[in-house]
């Protein structure tokens, strides 16, 4: 292979990309996908195994997905799909931002001040075990309109996760850093700004990644139960209106977007914590 590389006279970046694409790992990954797709196709359409036969076929889903004039009205070429994606994304965005803006400060204080934690944490822990979806009817009762309950539910899930992880992030900061800061003459506020916040950052971002996932989870559920537009809504109505291929399209879109939002949070975290990236890189090397 190296001889071929030399012949092609590539620059370093292109070369490493090609190496990645031709690596055994990449082959395995593609093979895995292909095996899965084959299994889907064979079990549903070709062999028509019991139970599997009722599922939408791979062919139906694909043709529907890429057709300019889909039978059930939703494909990557239709306006409708993007309407739903946008609706869901906007809701997740609003819920996530709200949960982060409220959850991170709460978590920071819970971790930082023992007094505050003794007062507030028990109430927090009483509310947390209630599954987010158990709030659905109450949310519908509390909030008028259709959007607000849905966003509230997505917010709730994210909020608890973010606050909890932030609190844990503060609590795991080594005592020595606090002591060093005090020795060096920092007052409480300065310790908060220079030790607590940066020290908890890795945990905060792990929490945020989980929180995005929880946000989608809660949102989809809420949309399925009560909503208009949105990917959860589309999955549910496609089922009730017997448009099975659209269900799959909705699911795939959800998975794809969920992954992207998670990756976005991860990359923001990486850029804010360059110090950690370098540290991790060195420890592996």
């Amino acid at each position: 292979m190296n001889k071929i590389m030399l012949k092609l006279n590539l620059n370093l970046r292109e070369e490493s990309l090609i190496r990645k694409l031709l690596s055994p790992r990449f082959f395995l990954m593609i093979t895995g996908f292909v095996i899965f797709l084959c299994f889907w196709h064979l079990s549903v359409e070709v062999w028509q195994l019991p139970r599997f036969a009722q599922l939408p076929t791979l062919r139906a889903v694909v043709t529907e997905f890429i057709s300019t004039n889909p039978i059930y009205g939703v494909s990557i070429f239709t306006h409708e799909l993007y309407q739903h994606i946008l609706a869901s994304c906007l809701r997740v965005f609003a819920a996530f931002i709200l949960a982060t803006l409220l959850g991170v400060p709460l978590g920071l204080f819970l971790g930082w001040s023992t007094k505050f934690r003794e007062y507030v944490f028990p109430v927090f822990e009483m509310l947390r075990p209630i599954p987010i979806l158990a709030w659905v009817p109450l949310a519908i009762v509390m909030f008028t309109g259709i959007e607000t309950p849905v966003i509230f539910l997505a917010f709730l899930g994210s909020f608890f996760v973010t606050a909890l992880n932030t609190m844990l992030g503060v609590q795991q900061i080594d005592e020595s850093y606090f002591r060093a800061a005090r020795c060096l003459g920092a007052n409480s506020f300065q310790v908060f700004k220079h030790v607590v916040i940066p020290g908890a950052m890795p945990f905060i971002f792990t929490g945020l990644q989980i929180s995005v996932g929880v946000c989608w989870f809660s949102l989809v559920a809420a949309e399925m139960v009560s909503g208009q537009y949105g990917l959860g809504y589309i999955i549910n109505t496609s089922y009730t209106n017997v448009r099975y291929p659209t269900i799959i399209i909705g699911m795939i879109t959800l998975g794809f977007i969920g992954y992207i939002t998670s990756a976005m949070v991860r990359s923001v975290g990486k850029s804010l914590m360059k110090w950690r990236m370098r540290e991790l890189a060195l420890s592996e090397g």
């Binding site: 080594d174 020595s176 005090r182 020795c183 940066p198 914590m273 110090w275 950690r276 540290e279």
Partner: peptide, 20 residues
């Protein structure tokens, strides 16, 4: 009261990893 007249250098090091 901890203060900058008596400064500790810690056993496992306490340089703030997030600051250069």
């Amino acid at each position: 009261t901890p203060g900058s007249d008596r400064i500790v250098v810690f056993q496992n090091g306490a340089l703030f990893p997030w600051k250069n």
